[in-house]
Amino acid sequence: MAKEDKVVGSADEMAKTSWERVNDKVHVWPYLTRLEFMCAIIITILLVVWSIVIDAPLEEPANPSVTPNPSKAPWYFLGLQELLVYFDPWMAGVVLPTLIIVGLMAIPFIDVNPKGNGYYTFHERRFAIFTFLFGFLVLWVWMVVQGTFLRGPGWNFFMPWEYWDPHKVVALTNVDLPYMLGFRSYWGQAACGAVLILLWYATIPAYYIWRRERMKNVGLVRYLIKASLNMTMMGIVAKMVLRIGLNVKYVLVTPWFNI
């Protein structure tokens, strides 16, 4: 391999001393500027050709009395629109997006693994990469793809070869999880739901106690934030599974809000 082609973080690069690695430098002019220039030219050509060939969409004038079916948010928000199937709007539209932004911002402060700083590696930070890629590829990219191509009128699910029938009838047989488990009284259901959710989050202290030796360098506060964010993300998945697999509507029903 030529010297230029060495993969960052490769064995022979790591064999160098730190001083050698950090001081192996080249001039920005011309080595970086020429690349930036090339990059800019390529992107410009692509954008110009694309704009000549494909016109931006423009539909009928805005008309508040004609609702198109399906009405879809812009494509990058379709993941959130998809969440509306599983959660009430206050969760799907407000609480979860806020948690996504806060959670993303928190990443540098909750990932205490000093390894893998500035080079590609999978095996030195398996958990972090797995979690991030799961959120990015499955909960974000895939939801956008599904929302764009597989969700038709009434936000019903259609396979790619199916006709988008606006009159498709989908039986709404969803029931609440506590009801399914046999609780019939109103407060019994509420209590059951609360216990289920508490149990879900009780895994957090339980894991901490089980692995307390390992948790020493993480710290209690950091661990709590990290684990709650993670369990919330997994909670979304759990709710999706319950909904798709068992037709569960809510886990927790209270007079004020439902989850």
Binding site: E60, P61, P68, S71
Partner: peptide
């Protein structure tokens, strides 16, 4: 200000109504 625009924004901003 076409149909695509107002309905996408309607769907997007409807959520704000549900802010706790």
């Amino acid at each position: 200000w076409d149909q695509l625009a107002i309905w996408a924004v309607t769907v997007g901003t409807n959520m704000a109504r549900a802010t706790p």
